[in-house]
């Protein structure tokens, strides 16, 4: 089955995530992860955009609310795409330790939300 490249989040869910995970604004172009690699973090686009490519060919642009790398990080599976961030884009980083810590809490709003991402993409 073809895997979706990313997960789309509503503005409410962006707020819930950014309240718990750190965000940073990129000053220059940078590759978030290369195709075939396991992303070292989940990346949520808060403001701005990232470019998705496959086999060095442009696939699409993702903007605010797009989450990439999340399931690959937790399942330790290589990504089928490369993601590059542009200057002035704000990215929220979902690190593995914090995700696992949050997911341990039963019946917590954020924990439930993160678990739906795993179900949505698998």
């Amino acid at each position: 089955m073809k895997q979706p490249m990313h997960i789309e989040l509503s503005s409410d869910n962006i707020e819930k995530i950014t309240a718990h995970f750190p965000s940073k604004i990129y000053k220059s172009n940078s590759t978030l992860f290369y195709e075939g690699q396991i992303p070292i973090s989940g990346y949520l686009v808060v403001i701005g955009s990232i470019q998705i490519s496959k086999k060095k060919k442009f696939k699409k642009m993702l903007s605010s609310g797009s989450l990439v790398g999340f399931t690959e990080l937790l399942n330790k599976t290589p990504s089928q795409i490369s993601a590059e961030v542009f200057p002035n884009t704000q990215i929220c980083f979902l690190d593995k330790s914090t995700i696992l810590e949050v997911c341990k809490v039963v019946d917590n709003e954020l924990s439930n939300l993160l678990q739906t991402f795993l179900v949505a993409k698998s």
């Binding site: 940073k24 990129y26 000053k27 220059s28 940078s30 690699q37 396991i38 992303p39």
Partner: peptide, 16 residues
């Protein structure tokens, strides 16, 4: 997380 980087690929970039 273990990854392989090809020649010329960046692990991280100055300013990030």
């Amino acid at each position: 997380i273990t990854n392989h980087y090809k020649k010329g690929q960046d692990l991280f970039v100055q300013g990030t």
